[in-house]
Design a protein around this nucleic acid. Structure first.
Lengths: 339, 339
DNA sequence: CTGAAAGCGCTTACAG
DNA sequence: CTGAAAGCGCTTACAG
């Protein structure tokens, strides 16, 4: 099938190409009657302006980029990214923006992708995930002047805009809840240590435990996979003076941990309480269902997309706070059984 | 930062823009020495040809589209799509193709997206998921002449290329395995009935059960969510003459089913055996680990991407078979306990 | 309010 | 082997 161009619309409407362009883009320069007639013809013949021609004439690419830096397998198992993408998409589609996705092996590859996208004018801006301490991507994006919104923080985002959530507060709430139940030995299985939010959580965990006078607030570093979560749990639960409650940095590890506890013959929640970070539907599929720290991830993604569109539109880069995760108590937490 | 253009490279190399273009695209028309010099300069100043200008001059968009038609929540929980995307991406990145992703509400919206993408020349081709019987998208894509590869089948893809997997064979293998263990009452919790592969599996299930002389081979339709999987399981396990084995069309429902069985005080696998379709790492996180039908989803996605790139390159549309899922027996299946 | 024209940054015949 | 020029399909000052 032959694609209609602006010239086809102009010819049928009996006006110049310029007039068609004005009509389509809501610019002044055509009478209302003419505009309506042009719009009707465009709709009738199914005209969609060529993105290439538009963006070559100085308009935007109407596309936003997102890179994902995780191996194929673990990308799939964590609901987080897909939910985030859904939310981003919802916001972008509403404004006819496209999402360009790229899976990368490491930060070096990611930086190369940003440079290429910028040079190719492929995207108008990017969404940055998995912020690290001293993140290499931040200065590159600043140097390029490529609009960007970091999903994460607070802090460490340089002059870039960001949307963040108060993980420290959520962690404190969780520990206080467990202490109120009577727990004194609480451990944590953390996410990738290189990520900034892991650092933030670890720091908050250490501080709140000290404040509440809990003895050994140990954090075992991990990588979000079930295997590592299982291994860390096995180690924690077979140690002398094992914890009576474990907080996991994602739900996949929490589910693996639950399984390990049950395998070891420890009752959950009687002998071990379990709390998961990220309250995806997975948490309610297991038995007992997991107490979890949840937040609306699609909304978080939509929020970030909205900010990015604003920055692309020329708004100043802001640090915006998104909602804090809240705890939903379920069957996996209870007072520790006297032993 | 100012983006370098082909003119900048030409100026520094002391040649025409045409020569730079030839050098960059590996076309004849420049001497090898000149080509090397041009390439070096381009690399040095970080030149990336504008996508818009390229594609406006008749080249391809170097982008492929993929639409996802599921609500945000359930999209996240099923590892399938993210794994598929990872595989697609791996293949595309290697050839510097971008992936444009769009989440849509229904097939009507999806068709509209295809028309728009085609009109905008935004993508060179599309990957089509969740094939249905009499799929509306197929004739539209044929009419537009937009290169496409359907992920699914066999059959129902009209003149479009497709990559498919023999689900019927996998299902037969599973039922035969359960029968060999001694099961005679086998039920199945199916996926969305509208999807073609659900139909194919249901048909295969009915046939193999009849061939093996199994009485009531019931399939309870579902929607891939844990809630529906749990409900279907509850119904099946509380019926008179309840099945001793249940096959689930995805792993999320199988996990929910396992949980329901345990809740009802039925031993797995002693009183109920459970088999999951889609062997994501989730299957090994639960206790007992699930016997599952698995295949390499990232490879499947890569395969489809490769076919699409071929079709975009002018190759004829083929129906290509990908690997068949194979059964990995784990702790959730065993001979039925005499009762 | 409307039309004719330049220009975005490439690619690709077409001459030399 | 190389250069000058046309053209892809838009947008946007610039004249009328």
């Amino acid at each position: 099938m032959k694609r209609p161009t602006i010239a086809d619309v102009a010819r049928r409407a009996g006006v110049s190409k310029g007039a068609v362009s004005y009509a389509l883009n809501g610019q002044p320069g055509v009478s209302e009657a003419t505009r309506q007639r042009i719009l009707a013809i465009a709709a009738e013949i199914g005209f969609n302006p060529s993105r290439a021609a538009r963006s070559l004439s100085g308009a935007t690419a109407d596309a936003v980029g997102l890179t994902l830096c995780r191996p194929a397998r673990t990308l799939g198992i964590e609901p987080f990214f897909m939910e985030l993408i859904s939310g981003v998409e919802a916001e972008l589609s509403a404004r006819s923006y496209a999402l360009t996705l790229q899976v990368v092996a490491d930060q070096e590859a990611e930086v190369a992708v940003y440079r290429r996208w910028w040079g190719e004018r492929r995207v108008d801006g990017v969404l940055v995930c998995d912020l690290r301490a001293d993140d290499r991507r931040v200065p590159v994006l600043e140097e390029l002047g490529l609009p960007a919104v970091v999903i994460g923080g607070p802090g460490g985002t340089g002059g870039l805009a960001s949307v963040w959530s108060d993980d420290a507060a959520a962690l404190v709430e969780t520990v206080e809840y467990l202490v109120a139940l009577g727990h004194r030995r609480i451990a944590r299985v953390g996410g990738l240590p290189a990520l900034l939010h892991t650092e933030i959580r670890t720091e908050a965990f250490t501080q709140v435990c000290r404040r509440l006078g809990l003895a050994d607030a140990v954090t075992v570093p991990s990588d979000y996979t079930g295997e590592e979560g299982a291994r860390a749990t096995r180690r924690l639960l077979s140690s002398a003076g094992r914890p009576t409650a474990v907080i996991y940095d994602n739900d996949v590890m929490a589910i693996a941990g639950l399984s390990v506890a049950q395998e070891m013959g420890l009752a959950v929640p009687g002998e071990v309480s379990i709390v998961a970070w990220d309250d995806s539907p997975l948490c309610q599929l297991v038995h007992p269902p997991l107490t979890a720290l949840g937040r609306d991830i699609p909304a978080y993604g939509a929020h970030a997309a909205r900010e990015l569109l604003a920055v692309i539109g020329g708004a100043p880069a802001r640090q915006v706070q998104d909602g804090t995760a809240h705890l939903t108590p379920r069957g996996s937490t209870a007072p520790p059984r006297a032993s």
